[in-house]
Simulated scan of single mutants.
Amino acid sequence: MSIAKVLRVTRFQKSGSRQWMQRAQATICAALLLVLTGCSSAVTKLETWEGSPAAAVNSSTLEAPGVIHVSEVNGRSMKNYLMDDMALDYALLPGENQVVFTYKTIWAKSGVVDNGESKVHIIESAPQVVSFEAAPNETYHFEFDKPDSRRQAEEMMPGFSAAVVGVNGQALAQSSAWSPSDSVVAARTPVSDGASGLADDGEAATGNGESALNRLKAIWNTASDEEKKTFLRWAFE
């Protein structure tokens, strides 16, 4: 076999190998895209209740953009995800709902950044709370002023507020500063008018249809470490 023929065979084999690698890479990328798309659709709408209440079939939707981070709904803590800028939809039961959230934006730093120093500025509001009446099968979203620069964002934070708006463009409620004690009244899951005097676990229910134990659990999750210590000292005295 001549040297020229050997070189042609070698080039053909290398070309075939490159094509195979390109096809394999394309297949892997497509598979990863499908997986990521499936994961994204699986977590973009979160239920805000426990169990299987009958009213869930008529739940409404609260759309939260990536800059709005909902921490709890009706006293129930919401999940945190690795991607802070993920837009999420929250399924709400019809009736009064209380939503606690923060507004957070990220701005790139200009100039040289020292080794180990963050490359971004994070501008975050104080926790906000908004309460509104959700109608069955309706969709709501947040509206707020959007800063054009980091400096403007910093200036907005002390008085930041967001409105919950319906599909007709009308604001239902405006948020205000939140503290853990604000969740005591709303630490509940809305229930239908036909709720009985007993909770699902057989314990005595409060006037709004939930057990005292579940209410205490919800309040406990919002308490600070010092408040928990004070309560435990009181409980065991």
Rank of each mutant, 00 (worst) to 15 (best):
P65S: 12
G95Q: 06
S71V: 13
F142G: 11
S176Y: 03
I68F: 01
S176F: 02
N80H: 10
H121N: 14
S175L: 05
W107M: 01
V100D: 02
S77K: 14
S131E: 15
T189S: 08
R76M: 14
Q174G: 03
E138N: 02
T102I: 00
M157D: 08
S52D: 12
A134P: 06
K79V: 08
E154L: 05
Y103V: 00
P94G: 06
E96W: 02
A135Q: 15
S181K: 05
G159H: 06
S59F: 03
P65C: 10
E50S: 08
D89I: 00
W49N: 06
H69T: 12
A171Y: 03
Y81V: 11
S71P: 07
L88F: 01
S52A: 08
E143D: 13
H141V: 08
M78I: 07
S149F: 09
S52N: 10
D85P: 01
E96R: 08
V113I: 11
V130F: 10
A171S: 13
S179T: 06
R76E: 15
A55H: 04
P180N: 07
E72R: 15
V120F: 09
V70P: 01
P190L: 05
L62N: 13
V57W: 06
K79D: 14
S179M: 02
V100M: 00
P136K: 13
G95P: 04
F101G: 00
F160A: 08
A163W: 00
S118M: 03
S181N: 05
K109Y: 03
G111N: 05
A91M: 04
S161H: 08
L93W: 02
L82K: 06
N74Q: 15
S161F: 01
G51P: 08
G159R: 07
A173K: 08
V67L: 10
S77Y: 12
T102P: 00
E154F: 00
I122H: 10
A177M: 02
